[in-house]
């Protein structure tokens, strides 16, 4: 008997029994009442598929979706880090207008449901930007050009480029608010004496921030920022609502065309879990190292 079983008390057994019972019930309903036919063997093909005619492997729906999610999260993460840092600094500014603007942004994002925000950003901001820059035509041009391969490595299917940009913008601006709070907390955790010492040698407000406060604050905010990045990956599934073709969107597509409801969603859940949990283990290890 494994040693941990010896530590189980009657309450633990009760909880475990209830859980097993619930799982068995769901299983029975699927098997019996719904007459669900499991087709797990088809799932690998929707991840990675071998094309007989061309004799090569290619990423199918789910893996395409995963790559798209990764790309979007990396770009949105960079955008959120930059804009969030600006917001955080603005929250600590001496100028009242600047402080109020940053505060307003944060409170709006904090008190409106994410789905609503995503739609508002999408229609009011990224759509307008994409139209204004005539990005659709530009991206289609790239897709037809010779250098399409390089572009596709970074941005995926170039015909979908505007949609990717929407996703990155919307997600990045959304996460920036929370990054801003992290940065603000970091700045405010630096003792007052540091600012006074900087001012006492004649530094300007900007120099004080740039050379004294920010270097110290940023090294303090690395761990919470890493956690925020994991949140960003999870939140990224929400942009499937604005038709950005990332993992969740691709899963919806897959389910619609194959009816493999449970297999597809369980696989996608596993992708997200492995990605996020893996990153959180990695960050924890990096953090403990120094």
């Amino acid at each position: 008997m494994p040693s941990f079983l010896k530590h189980l008390r009657w309450a633990d057994w009760l909880i475990l029994t209830v859980l097993v019972g619930a799982a068995a019930y769901v299983g029975m309903r699927l098997e019996g009442t719904l007459n669900y036919e499991w087709r797990w063997h088809l799932i690998p093909d929707y991840i990675l598929r071998y094309r007989e005619d061309r004799q090569e492997w290619f990423a199918n729906l789910l893996l395409q979706g995963l790559f798209a999610t990764l790309r979007i999260c990396i770009y949105a993460g960079i955008l959120a880090a930059i804009f969030g840092t600006i917001l955080g600094v603005a929250r600590c500014a001496r100028n009242l207008t600047v402080r109020m603007l940053a505060r307003t942004y944060l409170e709006l994002l904090r008190n409106i449901p994410p789905v609503v925000i995503i739609f508002i950003f999408f229609f009011f901001l990224s759509q307008q930007l994409i139209d204004a820059l005539n990005m659709n035509a530009w991206a289609r041009g790239i897709a037809r050009s010779d250098s399409a391969g390089v572009w596709e490595f970074f941005f995926g299917d170039m015909r979908r480029f505007p949609s990717l940009i929407s996703g990155v913008l919307v997600l990045g601006l959304f996460q920036a608010a929370f990054v801003g709070e992290i940065v603000r907390a970091g700045i405010q955790s630096i003792p007052r004496g540091q600012r006074e010492a900087a001012r006492a040698i004649g530094m300007s407000g900007f120099q004080e921030m740039r050379y004294i406060i920010m270097p110290q604050a940023l090294s303090k905010v690395v761990p919470p920022m890493a956690n925020q990045f994991i949140s960003l990956i999870k939140d990224s599934s929400i942009i499937s609502l604005i038709s950005v073709q990332e993992l969740t969107y691709k899963t919806v597509e897959l389910v619609a065309s194959t009816r493999m409801i449970f297999e597809a969603w369980i696989t996608t859940a596993a992708f997200y879990f492995v990605l996020c949990f893996g990153l959180s283990l990695l960050f924890r290890r990096l953090e403990n190292r120094d």
Binding site: P191, G193, Q194, E196, A197, A200, I201, G202, M203, Q216
Partner: peptide, 20 residues
């Protein structure tokens, strides 16, 4: 004031050195 602060040095009770 900034020009002035260059001409007036200050030493604090808590040192306030830059730790980074």
């Amino acid at each position: 004031i900034r020009q002035l602060r260059q001409d007036v040095g200050m030493v604090f009770q808590q040192f306030n050195l830059f730790p980074h």
